[in-house]
Design a protein around this nucleic acid. Structure first.
Lengths: 356, 356
DNA sequence: ACCGTTGCTGCAATCGTTTGCCCTGAGCCT
DNA sequence: AGGCTCAGGGCAAACGATTGCAGCAACGGT
């Protein structure tokens, strides 16, 4: 027995006023248009009936759905849940809810989800999937819907975004490694068509240059995705080159985890024979053995800040797009140590250790 | 320059028909009410204009929002992202989207989120937060909104739900431990007011009974939440009792991770001095050292099945509530091994090892 | 005493779709 | 030929809120 929902009409009737008046009394912005006396009567009536405005009807009339579309690559990536939590918590405070869409890095799927959201008239988008050049962006802008970028930024800084200072982070990582005594440092760079991949790679080159170190091609690999598999593949590739190195800077923690697998397979121990440093300080990454040295920033805050930027736009704030950079913090854990005094593992390998 | 959205009226005009006719032509269920000829004209017009129906207006009229409210304790718990993905993927196939709400195990917050969703007229709920007795349940049912339970079940099986066979899983775990030679097995049980906590504890008792083993009170601890902290606290408590045991069955993987911390602190090695088994096979749990022996089931499938059950209800399927039990699979990894031949660590402890 | 102002409230249109109902014309049967 | 059914499609009323406009009192100023 579904109970009939109480609507504005009922509240108005109980308060003895016209629905229009009730509407004004209920909305804080228009409350001053009605006398305090009737406003109170309406409020009381609404409370008594347990009135909940019909969000759908309201959206239709006001053309605001109080819904935000959030596009992320994959919720299963542990980086995203805290970010999403931050977003949702902040949005909720302003009466908005988030619609989460996973794109799996697939352009077609991204477009589908985007359209779905558009049909539901989301008031704005938060994108964590933006490639450096992304047709969706121009499309959304043309439709007049505010967009905020998270974690990644647009080529020309033309959109509000919140991200971590990636370049600086990797420079910190490199400087940590060199101060431990490493000179032969490999790099597994992320995809170069997203801003994080690019900026971190630039950070690596800058850090190495600042230390006066070379970056030979055989110590460099480009992952096609920020995934464990790619990290594994890339480190294998570097090891296969047969030239010694004592540390590797990975484009993010997932790639670093892939490195762990490749090291295991090669029978190399971390950090004794190879130091590894990641980026992101994902949840649970500190539970690995060895716990990963990485660059941390508040994921939750990325979410709340992105929400803040978007809410600003939604409430009419115009002006130039703000780009927020969070400062990363180097968290030194067990995966980095001074380079071994032992003969390089490449020598050991030749003498039969290290397995297939 | 926001471009004006194309609406049904425009399509109708282009096709030279009345909006009502266009509506019927566009809806596959009513298409047979218009001649094939006009239907095609309408379809063509819609395609040409890139018509996207206004979901809000439709919802208002049809009283179906094609939105599902999903309540989970915390997205940050790695168990949930795959479940949510399963849900979303399955729902999307039927044109539904999910609204995710995190309750943080807080009743007040749960109620707020629930109301929020009700105001948005969600067509159904999927709850992963259900306590054995939950006022929200009766409320939703009274409002005539279908509800499906995930991961946990209702006291009396009165609601459709999908869960893993918890009791059986833990019996498998216990039998694995006993077959390794363990006899002194501790248990860290989860909260007893949720079905998972209760069923797994029952499974433990059943498994021990089947093996003819005792469960003394000092080898039993009840966690107040499925958290790392509680796991840590509980194992500490058991170790503090000073009575030997060689294995511990934890109520889920989070509790097991807490056990790892307690063992580290006590200077005990896993699995040499203490075997640990978890439940859930959370993402990344296999990356720990040692990799955790645990009970696996497809989280993704929990989501898809829950979605399926709900969609069934939404399309009018009545009948008794189905309760789906997935079969767990024991994944043996490095955290379990035969009990040590060494003198019990409790002896070692007395002789000064094992820290403060 | 009259007029303008101000403060409150009601009226009705509107947002974009869906759907019950009615109308029209064609086809068919007797 | 008349009356029947029936398919096809238009009309208009919803769904439940918001909001421009107008009415209407009370009030104050000259």
């Amino acid at each position: 027995m579904p109970e009939p929902a109480v609507k504005l009409r009922d509240v108005a009737r109980l308060a003895g006023v016209h629905p229009a008046t009730a509407s004004r009394a209920l909305n804080p912005d228009t409350r001053l248009l009605v006398s305090e006396d009737t406003a109170n009567r309406v409020l009381a009536a609404a409370a008594e009936l347990g009135y909940q405005p019909n969000a759908v009807a309201r959206s239709l009339r006001t053309r605001r759905s109080h819904t935000i579309g959030v596009l992320i690559p994959d919720l299963n990536n542990p980086l995203f849940p805290p970010i999403v939590r931050g977003l949702e918590d902040r949005l909720e405070a302003d009466g908005y809810v988030a619609l989460i869409g996973n794109t799996d890095g697939d352009d077609a799927r991204e477009r589908r989800v985007f359209e779905q959201m558009r049909a539901r008239h989301v008031d704005g988008y938060v994108l964590a999937t933006a490639h450096l050049r992304n047709p969706l962006l121009t499309e959304a802008i043309r439709a007049g819907v505010p967009v905020v970028l998270m974690n990644r930024i647009a080529e020309d800084n033309s959109l509000p975004s919140v991200t971590v200072d990636n370049e600086r982070g990797v420079r910190m990582a490199v400087s940590h490694l060199t101060s431990l005594g490493h000179r032969d440092i490999a790099c597994i760079a992320g995809p170069q068509d997203v801003s994080t991949g690019l900026a971190r790679y630039r950070g690596f080159r800058a850090g190495m240059a600042a230390a006066g170190l070379e970056v030979p091609a055989h110590r460099l690999a480009f992952a096609s995705a920020f995934s464990i598999e790619e990290g594994y593949r890339c480190l294998r590739q570097i090891l296969a080159a047969g030239r010694p190195c004592t540390a590797v800077a990975a484009g993010n923690d997932m790639l670093a985890v892939g490195c762990y697998l490749a090291l295991d397979e090669a029978g190399l121990s971390c950090p004794d024979e190879m130091s590894v440093v990641g980026f992101n300080d994902m949840p649970f990454i500190n539970m690995l053995r060895p716990p990963l040295t990485t660059l941390a920033f508040s994921h939750y805050q990325v979410g709340t800040q992105a929400a803040r930027l978007l809410l600003e736009r939604l409430s009419g704030g115009a002006g130039p797009a703000k780009v927020l950079y969070l400062t990363p913090e180097l968290i030194v854990r067990g995966s980095t140590a001074p380079p071994a005094r032992l003969p390089s593992y490449f020598e050991l390998k030749k003498s039969g250790r290290g397995g297939p």
